[in-house]
Amino acid sequence: MTQMKQRQVQLEVLRYNPDTDTEAHFQRYEVSCNEEGVVLDALNKVKETVDPTLNYRWSCHMAVCGSCGMMINGEPKLSCHTFLRDYEGVIRVEPLAHFPIERDLVTAPDDFMEKLKRVKPYLIPKKKKPISEGEYKQTPAQLMKFRQYSMCINCMLCYAACPEYGLTPKFIGPAALTLAHRYNIDSRDGGRKERQEVVATAEGVWDCTFVGACSEVCPAHVDPASALQQMKITSSIDWIVEHLIPGGKSARDTVSREDAGDIS
């Protein structure tokens, strides 16, 4: 087999050791990698041949697990999906922005996990029925309505891209709100009203000023910005129905059902 073409790669990696450091600092590494390699390969090469103390997360190496998110030259990226050949000169690798650094390139995702839970990202059936009555059926069109929003791999790149989240950490943020939307518009779901307690608040969709960065960096093409704008519209309709239409309170559930594309 012919030897794969090699490329000299210079990395500048942000290091932080909680046991000894009070500040983070950059460390330069130089390794030789396959021409077709990705940034994660270069990090693995560094760890194997130069510096075994370097910490970072990864698992699948195929843009599926969402654990290898980093800032690469200032841009939130999956390091397993960022090709070395697309870069000239020194590549600067930092942990995901807007998250506390646990160690080196490893960040603490606790805040995101907490927020995910708050939006109840699971089916809350409209009518509970016993298993003997069979499954909750759905047409292909009803599936397509939310499919895009179900492709999230929880990589948190959108949080690292979102200046709103950086400035206002209470903001529930793109991926979690998008998952709320994904269930809200699922024809089998009836949980929108419960989720609205979190979604239709200042910390929810109204903290979003539509910078749109989340959608630009999302590796799974989820387009969180679109989900949030749609939720702003339905939340506004809720408000109008509730406050300006006599007897409108109960109509909120009607909105929710239409929203879910219920064709029954």
């Binding site: 650094i101 646990e102 603490a108």
Partner: peptide, 21 residues
């Protein structure tokens, strides 16, 4: 020990960080 390092976002100059901002 768990002593995560929090990096502050500069409150007034953050939008110079990225062309999209």
């Amino acid at each position: 020990s768990r002593r995560p390092l929090v990096r502050e976002v500069p409150p007034t100059t953050w939008y110079f960080r990225q062309p999209r901002y």
